[in-house]
């Protein structure tokens, strides 16, 4: 034993014991740490959990805008469907009228053939009346021809009407398409505006969740801001001022320069911007 300990001046034994000691100490530390972990789990305050919920106001705004655009598109589709139904109703009515006219014509024809038979009997009885009857027959034929022509005319007009309806439907579809791309563009431009304003927005410490300030912004087609005014105050002067300053700091939405002038006039000449701090903790 003594010899083993004193071999190499006792260094191997020393190394063994030193490493063993550190291993024991760190093992104890690790064990205590695990015991502590459970305690921490129990006392963890609920406020800490709330911190993890980070809401991006921009994403929320985008979501709202998307929903609105969806709603508008739905309304437009419903309108289109209603028009389509009205048109089909009209078509059905016309069809019925035509069918009735045909029936009338058939009845007429039957009546006429009966008359002819009677005339033939009468011809045998009285030849004098023959000429008059022949004339009547001719007249009847003429009438029939006229009726036929009228029928053809009606069919032609019906076809014309159908074609026009189709043209109208195509035109309305194109308009809807245009409106949809317009809506997309407006959404994109709004997102740009929101981004820029948000970057320049420094919220005052008095800002609270639930505060809403609405600003009316007037612009010219170059993207320069002419005027900013608070339409709806949040009740906190500093918050209103901060919102106003954020817009004024942007000074110019240069991204809006290449925009279609029709879109600009309709959506961005004057528009409202809503400020609400959603991601605050208090």
């Amino acid at each position: 034993m003594i010899r083993a300990v004193t071999a190499f001046n006792g260094y191997p034994v020393s190394v063994f014991f030193a490493v063993l000691l550190h291993g024991l100490i760190f093992g104890a530390l690790f064990y205590m740490q695990r015991a502590n972990t459970e305690v921490i789990d129990i006392v963890r305050p609920p406020v800490v959990k709330a911190l993890l919920v980070a809401e991006n106001p921009q994403a929320r705004n985008e979501e709202l805008q998307r929903q609105q655009a969806q709603r508008v598109a739905d309304q437009r589709r419903a309108e289109q469907r209603r028009q389509e139904q009205a048109r089909q109703e009209q078509q059905r009515r016309e069809e019925q009228q035509r069918r009735e006219a045909e029936q009338r014509a058939q009845a007429e024809q039957q009546r006429r053939t009966e008359a002819e038979r009677q005339q033939a009997e009468q011809r045998r009885q009285a030849q004098l009346q023959k000429e008059r009857q022949e004339q009547q027959q001719r007249e009847a034929q003429q009438r029939r021809q006229q009726e036929l022509a009228a029928q053809q005319e009606a069919a032609r007009q019906e076809q014309l009407r159908q074609e026009q309806a189709q043209r109208e439907a195509a035109a309305s579809a194109a308009a809807a398409e245009l409106a949809r791309t317009d809506a997309e563009l407006v959404t994109a431009y709004s997102a740009v505006i929101h981004d820029l304003v948000q970057q320049n927005w420094s919220r005052p410490p008095s800002a609270r969740n639930g505060m809403v300030a609405v600003l009316r912004i007037q612009m010219v087609p170059t993207g320069d801001i002419l005027n900013v005014e608070v339409v709806q105050s949040s009740g906190d002067y500093a918050f209103d001022r901060a919102a106003e300053t954020a817009v004024l700091k942007v000074r110019r939405f240069s991204e809006l320069q290449g925009m279609d002038i029709r879109l600009f006039e309709r959506n961005f000449r004057t528009f409202l911007l809503t400020f609400r701090p959603q991601d605050l903790l208090n």
Binding site: T6, N9, G10, Y11, V13, S14, V15, A18, L21
Partner: peptide, 17 residues
């Protein structure tokens, strides 16, 4: 960590010497 281990090696070895 290495300083601690080495110093403990020295402590034990010196103690034995």
């Amino acid at each position: 960590m290495s300083a601690s281990v080495t110093s403990w090696v020295m402590i034990i070895q010196r103690w034995m010497v």
